[in-house]
Amino acid sequence: MTDNELIQLSTEVGGYLKRLNATVTTAESCTGGWIAKILTDVAGSSQWFERGFVTYSNDAKQELVGVSVDSLTGYGAVSEQVVREMAEGAREKACAQFAISVSGIAGPDGGSAEKPVGTVWFGFASATAETLAQRKVFSGDREAVRRQATAWALLTLRDHFLKN
């Protein structure tokens, strides 16, 4: 997805949030704040985005959004359990109706047989629905994995939470 397509998607997500009088927050690891950046590239985004969390380290995940040490040591930072806790913690800390979390292995190294480079876990928390966690494996270099993760997160928020 190009930069212009990401901005168009962000504008659409913002429109849905504005109509719902709702806000969204982010807790990002491998995307390093890219989702928050794309959301705030839209003029007027302060109406539906107040804050996000870049939780690149395990310490940041614990301190900023309340991920448990047990989840991090038991499952690893790139796991369903951790992104669920990231999304739920971010939503609570930001007092937002929706939260997106992302943790993955963008590469070029750091992967394993169980979690190859390109593996990204996403969490989606909502004030009115059960937290959703999904795993995707993207291809390409570091930039491509991060771009695909950013787009997929926004598409999933739009299609599974905002359009309904």
Rank of each mutant, 00 (worst) to 15 (best):
M1Y: 12
T2K: 15
D3T: 15
N4Q: 14
N4V: 15
Q8C: 12
S10V: 13
E12V: 13
E12G: 10
G14T: 06
L20R: 12
T26G: 10
G33P: 04
A36G: 08
K37W: 03
K37L: 01
L39N: 02
S45G: 02
S46P: 04
F53G: 13
Y56T: 09
S57Y: 04
D59I: 12
D59S: 13
E63N: 07
E63V: 09
V65S: 06
V65F: 07
G66M: 09
V67S: 03
T73L: 12
T73Y: 10
G74L: 04
Y75W: 06
G76Y: 07
G76R: 07
A77T: 09
A77G: 09
V78C: 11
E80R: 11
V82E: 05
V83G: 06
A90L: 00
E92S: 13
K93N: 12
A94T: 15
V102N: 10
V102S: 05
G104H: 00
I105A: 05
A106Y: 07
A106S: 11
G107I: 10
G110A: 06
G111E: 08
K115S: 11
P116E: 10
G118I: 12
T119W: 03
T119E: 05
W121T: 08
W121E: 02
F122T: 09
G123K: 05
F124Q: 12
A125P: 10
A127H: 06
E130N: 10
A133M: 13
A133W: 13
K136D: 14
V137A: 12
V137R: 14
F138A: 05
F138M: 01
G140V: 11
A144Q: 15
V145I: 11
A151R: 12
A151W: 03
L155R: 11
T156G: 05
T156A: 03
R158D: 03
D159A: 10
L162W: 06
